[in-house]
């Protein structure tokens, strides 16, 4: 099975759209500070792009985005978020206390970047996890 829908049109359009969606998704993630949006929404968009890839390209998409990649990205995203939380603990702060994460920077600046990284990590994590769920569902419960 190469694709669920043997359609050249779908194939071409999807391939063209995926990068656009991804770019927009990154925009949504990184602009969570200023406008509605953020890690969750952007992550969902990223996932949607991969799902589009899966739908349009079928098994070929596993070469671009392997089956394992979803959960690995999710795991690393969450792990990075956790480490972000632990980072300030190293400097004597509380968990997720961005203001203490790096000595020598002003607190609001640090929080800004803390939020930024948190959003990015969340974006990756949501991306990976949702793709993983999709991949799992796509097997249809093979035993």
């Amino acid at each position: 099975m190469t694709s669920r829908f043997e359609s050249v049109f779908l194939y071409v359009v999807a391939r063209a759209m995926v990068p656009l969606i991804q770019v927009f998704a990154f925009y949504v993630i990184t602009h969570g500070h200023y406008s509605p949006g953020g890690g969750f929404q952007g992550g969902v968009m990223l996932a949607a792009s991969i799902i589009l890839l899966r739908v349009s390209m079928g098994d070929e998409s596993y070469d671009r985005f392997p089956r394992e990649a979803g959960i690995v990205i999710a795991g690393f995203g969450a792990l990075a978020f956790a480490l972000l939380g632990f980072m300030s603990m190293l400097f004597g702060g509380n968990f997720l206390e961005y203001a203490l994460a790096v000595p020598g920077m002003s607190a609001d600046e640090l929080r800004y970047w803390g939020i930024f990284f948190a959003e990015v990590f969340i974006g990756f994590l949501v991306w990976g996890a949702l793709v993983a769920i999709y991949d799992a569902l796509e097997t249809g419960g093979v035993e």
Binding site: V28, P36, G37, Q41, M45, A48
Partner: peptide, 9 residues
């Protein structure tokens, strides 16, 4: 924000 999330998710 919620609207966006609800629409996407």
């Amino acid at each position: 924000d919620v609207a966006l999330t609800e629409a996407a998710l």
